[in-house]
Amino acid sequence: MEPLIHGMLLAFGLILPLGVQNVFIFNQGATHKKFTNALPAIITAGVCDTVLIYLAVTGVSIIVFSFEWLTLLLYLIGFFFLTYMGWVIWKDKSEVSTNQEENLFSARRQITFAVSVSLLNPHAILDTIGVIGTSSLTYTGYDKWVFTLACIVVSWIWFISLGVLGIKVGQINGNRNFLIRINQISAIIIWIMAIYMGYKLYSLLF
């Protein structure tokens, strides 16, 4: 019971703060009328988190991030991609329509962006390694797998809930101006994250 509760509380504490991944999932929910249309982003984010948690618990990720150049590369790629992603979402305000779902992010585009905000976010990856990976060292055998599964389940429940919340908010305020504002706010938050990532990169270099 202890590893189960520990894993659930830890995963919830890590995933709750506002981040690029959460913003993107909520945005896809709010700008689509149907839950199934936002599923590509939700499922992709869940799978990426599952992989990261597994790597953190098994210790593989610690070995990878022992190379400083790899951390720098991730910050660099993350900075440029988040800048680009913010621009794309901001520009898409002209395509928002309450009548034409085809103008919104396609499944392929959702998957591409969800993978990027999940795996090109050094801050989130290092948090997963540092917190979940380190905490998992407390357990062995069966307890360790219970802890790991608890973290993974919370991650999936959170992304599904965030998508549903976005859908509900979009349905309640399903007018074009509101959806444009959702995109603009999402883009601004993503740009702030990009600036933060650029600052971290600068700090590591100088």
Results as ranks from 00 to 15, higher is better:
S116K: 03
L119P: 07
Y84V: 02
A114E: 08
L120G: 05
F81R: 02
T112Q: 12
W87A: 02
V96G: 11
I125E: 02
I129T: 04
T83N: 04
T112R: 10
V117N: 11
P122N: 06
L120K: 10
N99I: 13
W90E: 01
Q110M: 04
L82K: 00
L82V: 01
R109E: 11
N99R: 14
Q100T: 15
D127N: 11
K91M: 05
Y84F: 01
I125T: 04
D127P: 05
R108K: 14
N121Y: 07
Q110S: 07
R109K: 12
G86E: 01
N99K: 15
Y84W: 00
F113C: 12
T112I: 13
R108D: 11
K91E: 05
A107C: 09
S97C: 15
N103Q: 15
V88A: 03
A114T: 05
F81L: 03
F113V: 11
G130C: 08
A107E: 04
R108Y: 12
S97V: 14
V115C: 12
S106C: 11
K91W: 03
F80Y: 01
G86P: 01
F81T: 02
N99D: 15
K91G: 03
A114N: 06
F81D: 02
I129L: 10
E102P: 13
S116M: 08
F81H: 00
K91T: 07
F81Q: 01
A107R: 03
P122E: 05
L120E: 05
Q110E: 05
P122D: 06
K93W: 09
L82N: 00
W87F: 05
D92L: 09
Q110I: 03
Q110H: 06
W90K: 03
I111W: 06
G130D: 07
E102C: 15
S118A: 12
W90Q: 05
L120W: 06
Q110K: 06
S118Y: 08
L104H: 14
F105R: 11
S118V: 08
F105K: 10
S116G: 09
N99H: 12
F105C: 13
A114W: 08
G86T: 00
D92G: 11
A107Y: 05
V117I: 13
A107T: 06
S106A: 12
Q100V: 15
W87L: 04
F81G: 01
A114F: 08
R109A: 08
K91L: 05
N121W: 05
R109N: 10
S106K: 11
L120A: 09
H123E: 09
N103S: 13
D92Y: 03
S97F: 08
F80S: 01
I89Q: 02
L126A: 08
Q110F: 04
S106T: 13
L120Y: 10
R108I: 10
R109G: 08
T98F: 12
S106G: 12
F105W: 14
L126K: 06
D127Q: 10
R108G: 12
F113L: 11
Q100P: 10
A114L: 08
K91N: 06
Y84E: 01
Q100N: 15
E102V: 15
G130M: 09
S94G: 14
G78E: 00
N103C: 12
N99G: 14
S97A: 13
M85G: 00
E101M: 11
V88S: 02
